[in-house]
Design a protein around this nucleic acid. Structure first.
Length: 260
DNA sequence: ATGGCGTACACCGTACGA
């Protein structure tokens, strides 16, 4: 089972690229973030014709997440379901979960936070805390659970190009890193790092200044697996090729292959 | 990198992303 994740920065703009990547990769599951599109405008038919079901939690203009899968998704859940649906953390469509081929899959788009001083920063921290609570209330670490998405945090110095200059700033601050590690402490393994130990492997590059072509990016998109699932991870990587296509998303694809 | 790009919605600019 090949599982992947991709922040597409508008599904309406990137639909043909998603199709192209699915055809090339033959992925069984693709988690998507930043659809920027309401449910009724999601291109269900395009992916349906290619043999993929879609579990969608869409929203106009901002956010929006989905899971594409060859097998029909079961028990679809939207948002941080341990909180009320009208809770402030559930106003933005950032979480969708479904069971596919016996594996619980989660597509997550964590808040950016803007800056450490921004009023959006406490929202980011609260979202991380409640994300961990969601895991504790809905899952056990011995289950087959795969959490995919854009976490908007670079885990370590090797996950960004300029760790010294950046110091304590958004996406790399000790507060954000601690919040992400608390999510991982549920019992999750970073699937990319199982098979790739080197520094300088990124999943996002700023559009401005041609940062991709300068090799200056960050690893902020992840595929996390519970231990029993991680043991079955035969391969994983970041596929940079979509970042070189015409009119690309600023993020690229992270994927992992499991022997199931 | 932080005016430098891209997307959405609307309007001919503003909000937001990371």
């Amino acid at each position: 089972m090949k599982i992947a994740t991709w922040n597409v920065n508008s599904i309406r703009v990137r639909a043909e690229q998603v199709l192209k990547w699915l055809e090339r990769s033959d992925a069984d599951v693709l988690c998507l973030q930043e659809l920027k599109t309401p449910d009724e405008e999601f291109p269900y038919d395009l992916f349906g014709e290619a043999g993929y079901f879609a579990a969608v939690a869409g929203q106009r203009t901002y956010n929006g997440v989905a899971i594409l899968s060859k097998e029909e998704p079961k028990d679809i859940s939207r948002g941080l379901s341990h909180l009320p649906s009208d809770h402030p953390l559930n106003e933005q469509r950032r979480i969708v979960a479904a069971t596919i081929g016996g594996v619980r899959i989660l597509s997550a788009y964590m808040p950016n936070g803007e800056s450490l001083e921004s009023e959006k920063f406490p929202f980011k921290m609260e979202f991380f805390r409640e994300f961990r609570n969601y895991l504790d209330k809905n899952h056990e670490p011995d289950e087959g659970l795969c959490i995919c998405g854009d976490f908007n945090v670079a885990r370590e110095a090797i996950d960004l190009y300029n760790p010294e200059e950046r110091g304590e700033s958004i996406l790399v601050s000790s507060k954000e890193r601690r919040a992400l590690e608390e999510v991982l402490d549920f019992g999750l393994t970073d699937a990319f790092r199982l098979h790739n130990k080197e520094q300088g492997r990124y999943s996002w590059w700023d559009y401005r200044g041609g940062m991709y072509w300068k090799g200056k990016g960050m690893r902020i998109d992840y595929l996390f697996a519970t231990r029993p699932l991680a043991k079955l991870c035969a391969a994983s990587d970041i596929d940079e090729s979509p970042r070189r296509w015409k009119r690309p998303s600023d993020h690229t694809v992270v994927w992992a292959e499991f022997d199931i």
